[in-house]
Amino acid sequence: MHVPVSITINGRQYSRDVEPRLLLVHLIRDVLGLTGTKVGCDTSQCGSCTVLIDGVAAKSCTCLAVQADGTSVTTIEGMAGDEGLHPLQESFWNKHGLQCGYCTPGMIMASHELLRCNPDPSDEEIRHGLEGNFCRCTGYQNIVRAVRDAAGSATGGAQ
């Protein structure tokens, strides 16, 4: 069985016929070639695949492409706008919030969610807000700094 799916990603609309079993992350990465979104696990734990579906963070590995039909998705590729990097991207860069970078796209999307729900979080709240995103490199400390820093700067939404 193939099912038509129409989805807007980073402002551009895509229509494809997909197998129902296709995960959103595979649609994004393998069908549409937007490889910024990562896959780090097969049990929905690691958060590497986090995207925004209609502005709300979701694990794209735990959503079928058909479930996302008709939605508007933002991936890491859609975070920078005409004015340049998103404040979160800037702050991850400024605060050395990444090393190998593999967790970073998901981490930035999860941080976006955190600030959407809580624009002025404490360190404790940042740590809790990122509990669904694993990073094996940084020990998280500079990620926390980066999010705190981004919260301080003008909050710009995703495109």
């Binding site: 937007l34 490889t35 910024g36 979104t37 990562k38 991936t75 890491i76 590729e77 975070m79 920078a80 990097l85 991207q89 991850f92 860069w93 400024n94 050395h96 990444l98 970078g101 593999y102 970073t104 796209p105 930035i108």
Partner: peptide, 16 residues
């Protein structure tokens, strides 16, 4: 100084 490798990593344009 900020890392040279980061721009590609924070924008999802790095290639693994």
């Amino acid at each position: 100084i900020r890392r040279r490798e980061d721009p590609r990593l924070i924008t999802g344009t790095a290639t693994y």
